[in-house]
Amino acid sequence: MTELKRIGVLTSGGDAPGMNAAIRAVVRGSIYHGVEPVAIREGYKGLIDNDLEVVNARSVANIINQGGTFLKSARCQEFRTKEGRAKAYENARAANLDGLVVIGGDGSFTGAMLLEEEHGIPCIGVPGTIDNDIYGTDYTIGYDTALNTVVEAIDKIRDTATSHNRLFFIEVMGRDAGFIALNTGIAAGAEEILIPEQENSVEKLMSGLQSSGRAGKTSSIIVVAEGDKSGGVFELARTVEKSFPEYEAKVTVLGHIQRGGKPSCFDRVLASRLGVAAVEALLKGESGIMVGVRDQQVVKTPLERAISKQNTIDSHLMKVAEIITV
């Protein structure tokens, strides 16, 4: 084990339910191993502004059940420059940080990788994003909670859809990946699911609606990932209304409601495991890696691979979605 005196922890990029649980695990994991934890506020901006504070076990009491991140998060343009990263390094060195745990997504990991390459600060990434699009882990912190939030919202919208013979287009997050749309669409019984990974989505939708009409369906739920190639959910709704005047098309964009809320049990446990694993990786002298889970086991992936590669949609799950929407 490497002798470390201080470990810094920060959250960066978009917030995700379970980040607080991960912070808590890093802080208490550090203390358990005799290392002093240092909290950095507002991500890399906090490193540049020298907004650092030594914390203790009580500092992270009663936060495991809270969504968001009590350390706050920010996208820092200054940190994208070499001068900004040099300033962040000087503050980290002045604070005697021997390592850094970065909780966030691929943009946050890019910053960690550059900081390590340019200045030699050991960095460990913990995947915190609701999109579940980080390579090297089956699940990212916040994904499970977001799925439950979306399913609950769709269930409520369906009540209105069936009461008024309406066609609801529900846009969910997923600019580059359709994990949220595919899984929530299946779980909520959507008639159609449109995701970025799918070709000819509009044609498929039109064919599906025709089949639904012949099957006697009077209302439908269409789940659309924001990155779908159809041209946007509002344009999609207008196109469908022209072709199917019997439907009254409505659009609901769930937006940032998907990021909020109390983290699920799954996310709390996942965040706790990965936070502890990040601390123990630094203690072993490891750096430049992300900790994740594969087949329920903690695994480590080089940050470069986590950033450059992407999780792929399960083709079998797409087939399941096609089968159960008949």
Rank of each mutant, 00 (worst) to 15 (best):
M1D: 11
M1N: 05
E3A: 14
E3T: 15
L4I: 12
I7V: 10
I7H: 03
V9P: 00
A16D: 00
P17D: 05
N20S: 05
A21E: 10
I23S: 04
A25L: 01
I31R: 11
P37E: 03
P37V: 05
V38T: 07
G43C: 07
I48F: 08
N50E: 08
V54H: 02
V55T: 00
V55C: 09
N56V: 00
A57W: 09
I64E: 14
N65R: 15
F70I: 07
L71W: 02
C76W: 11
C76L: 07
R80K: 15
T81C: 10
K82F: 14
A88K: 01
A92H: 02
A95H: 02
A95I: 02
D98M: 10
G99L: 09
V101S: 06
V102E: 09
G105W: 06
D106K: 06
S108A: 14
G111V: 05
G111T: 08
M113Q: 13
E116Y: 13
E117S: 12
P122H: 02
G125D: 10
G125L: 05
G125C: 06
T129D: 07
T137H: 12
D138T: 12
T140M: 03
T145W: 09
T149D: 02
T149R: 10
V150R: 09
V150E: 11
A153H: 11
I154F: 11
I154Y: 13
D155Y: 00
T160P: 04
R166S: 10
F169E: 11
G174T: 07
D176F: 15
D176T: 13
A177V: 08
F179D: 11
L194Q: 03
I195S: 05
Q198F: 04
Q198L: 14
S201H: 03
M206F: 12
R214Y: 13
S219Q: 12
S220F: 01
I222D: 04
I222E: 04
V224M: 06
G227F: 01
G227H: 03
K229D: 07
K229V: 11
G232D: 10
E235H: 13
T239W: 08
F244M: 12
E248F: 03
V251M: 08
L254S: 00
H256G: 06
R259P: 00
G260L: 07
K262Y: 00
S272H: 08
L274M: 02
A277I: 09
A277L: 02
A278C: 07
A278E: 10
V279H: 06
K284T: 07
G285D: 08
I289W: 11
I289K: 13
G292F: 01
R294W: 04
R294D: 12
D295A: 14
Q296S: 15
K300P: 01
T301I: 00
E304P: 01
S308Q: 12
Q310T: 15
Q310I: 14
I313W: 06
D314S: 07
H316M: 14
M318Y: 10
I324Q: 11
